[in-house]
Design a protein around this nucleic acid. Sequence first.
DNA 1: TCTGGGGTCCTAGGACCC
DNA 2: TCTGGGGTCCTAGGACCC
Length: 420
Amino acid sequence: MYALADCNNFYASCERVFDPSLERRPVIVLSNNDGCVVARSQEAKSIGIAMGEPVFKCRDRIRRHRIVVRSSNYTLYHDLSQRVVQSLSHFVPDIEIYSIDEVFMDLDPLAGRDLEMVCRQARTAVGRWTGIPISVGIGPTRTLAKIANRIAKRDPELDGVCRLPDEKAAREDMLAAIDVQDVWGVGRRWASRLRELGVHTALDLSRMPTTELRRCFNVVAMRTGLELRGESCLDVQDVALPRKTMVRSRSFGTMVTEWSEMAEAIATHAIRAAEKLRLEGARAAQLSVFMSTNRFREDLPQYHRSGSEAMMPATSTTPVILKQALAIGRGLWKDGYHYKKAGVMLSDITFGHDQGMLFDVRDHERDHRLMEAMDQVNLRMGAGTVRPAVGGLRKRGWMMAQRCRSPRYTTRWDELPRTR
DNA sequence: TCTGGGGTCCTAGGACCC
DNA sequence: TCTGGGGTCCTAGGACCC
């Protein structure tokens, strides 16, 4: 058996933990650059604010209903997420962190115990210890646990925990009430194709022949079908798999028309990416840079391009990555466009020892000492205390807009919550 | 005026090998 | 006259997730 613990309205709930005045009020959290709505409290959902809706389209409703608006504060959300995981692991040993607000739990080690009871205890504890409300779904496969979780959220009488019934008829009734689009693994495209085939609910999907799913879609869809029938195809990954790629990108606060600004943005992404790579003890052998105009501005000429080069040998040294990223970026750049976004992607990521180079003249030992010194200073004195100047030294238009970010209550001494 | 960021997996098709 | 069969690797694009 598996359980899925999912934080309710996670970012909105995080905002409430240290600001109880937000309780019972509609709250929304915005994406980077304060562009779209990425989280809504229950009250905001009831008003009809949609997930992913651009803020400028709901300004009226925000004013009319006095909705509280927050920029996203990932430092805070990430920290609270870790506390939720820590609390859960107190009750269930085998867990997989699936996303910032979801945890899968393998319940087999708890065989013989009342699984629903354990999950209820875990839910209460998370609420008390972290202030974050969660819902838990229990089922024989991960896909069914997801569905149970959805039901737990929807039906207040279940008090936040739903165990999928074992009896066939009862379970089928539940599956029949779930829209096929709401099944984990079925997105918009597949949902519309499935509807054309007469498949409208999770129950319909579970009854579709495996070979048909394989033929019309792919093995991923086939697994989903099997999982809905109770045949487990996806296990809890209790060890996080090593990453394969790393991306740093942002859309700009205001559009960029000068290479000097674009260069700062690319440099900043390259610097951050290299830093994170070192933090994880990894190196990358492939570097890509991309830039694009604003796809929503149909009145302006469009341009988007990416370029990529090998890095030999694989590296995490900032100056190496930086120099190459700027060279690629310069090659992509064309005057005359209004750029809205740029980014850097590192791939072919390795951990441990890499292939060396026969004619390598670079002093890697020196690189290593330099990076170590820089990282140590930044760790102790604050991020960005020592950094390459090409990333820019003053506030510029390309930098991200964040008009209403709450304090980083749990990770900064100078932003600790105070009592009056 | 204003529209996010970061991932994974699968498949088809082309290039290449013997 | 007649022109095979069995592979691997890479990439781009499409789908999905949060």
